[in-house]
Amino acid sequence: MRVLVLGMGKTGKLVASVAAERGHSVNVLDAKENAGASALTPPFVSGFDVVIDFTTPEAAVQNMRACLATGAKMVIGTTGWYDKLTDMKSLAERKQAGLLYGTNFSIGVQVMLRLAKTMGEDLKKAGYAFSITETHHASKLDSPSGTAISLAKVVEAAAGVTAVPVEAKREGDVMGLHSLTAASDADRLVLTHEAFSRRGFAEGAVRAAEWLSSRSGCYDFQSVFSEI
């Protein structure tokens, strides 16, 4: 498989490395080489089976507009751009492209979301109050994290509550720490996922690209991860 990785940050570099380890041909573009998606011409994009984006919210939208317009298949690991999700889905559908996005490509986080749904459903009538805390490295641009937002939405829907409060912290080089707490007068239940490295995110993104390479349409990683 021919893979184009957009973004030369720590995760982007690791995605490229994991893709190469899995036997794929890899090309990487950094921000300077692809300012304003200028490098993503139709002839260039057509040379790849899948494009994987780990850039910034603004750059990701520009990259999607350029690539999806050609009918390309894209895995988007960047977060913070979901206000444009409807537009990007529409573009992908019109061009019969492939779009797979996710707030977190860690399989462990996806299992956490499933468990959070169970907590919300089982505790909603027992007087529990829910809250979320998340900690990430100081250079993370979006706050709260996309994962924390996804976690809150899952619990809100399952427990039938209006808003689950989220406390976001940015410090050091923390890979990602998310905790969901359900507290009552009688006890407290805490569900936590801690990432030790970016490896889990990178492997999930590459596996997602392999899965998407033979498909078109729009997919949320949360909905399809068990197939990947």
Rank of each mutant, 00 (worst) to 15 (best):
167 E>L: 13
168 A>V: 00
137 H>E: 10
100 L>A: 07
87 D>K: 12
142 D>H: 02
140 K>A: 08
129 A>W: 07
118 T>S: 04
137 H>D: 11
158 A>K: 01
135 T>C: 11
143 S>D: 03
120 G>D: 12
175 M>T: 11
169 K>T: 11
147 T>C: 09
132 I>M: 06
179 S>A: 03
102 G>A: 02
162 T>C: 04
128 Y>Q: 04
104 N>D: 13
125 K>L: 13
87 D>N: 10
161 V>I: 12
112 M>E: 05
121 E>K: 01
117 K>W: 10
133 T>A: 10
159 A>E: 03
115 L>T: 10
99 L>V: 05
119 M>K: 05
179 S>T: 11
91 L>K: 09
99 L>P: 05
106 S>I: 04
137 H>S: 12
105 F>N: 04
114 R>L: 15
122 D>G: 10
105 F>C: 07
86 T>W: 07
124 K>M: 11
135 T>A: 12
122 D>L: 15
122 D>E: 02
134 E>A: 04
162 T>E: 00
169 K>L: 06
137 H>F: 02
145 S>F: 00
124 K>Q: 15
120 G>I: 04
90 S>W: 08
125 K>Y: 05
94 R>Q: 12
164 V>T: 13
123 L>V: 13
148 A>W: 12
174 V>C: 14
86 T>M: 02
130 F>N: 03
119 M>T: 07
87 D>F: 04
127 G>D: 00
118 T>E: 07
88 M>V: 04
165 P>G: 13
157 A>M: 06
96 Q>R: 15
169 K>I: 13
175 M>L: 02
165 P>C: 11
174 V>Q: 01
180 L>Q: 02
164 V>A: 07
140 K>G: 06
140 K>S: 04
178 H>C: 11
182 A>H: 02
117 K>T: 03
137 H>V: 06
152 A>T: 10
88 M>S: 03
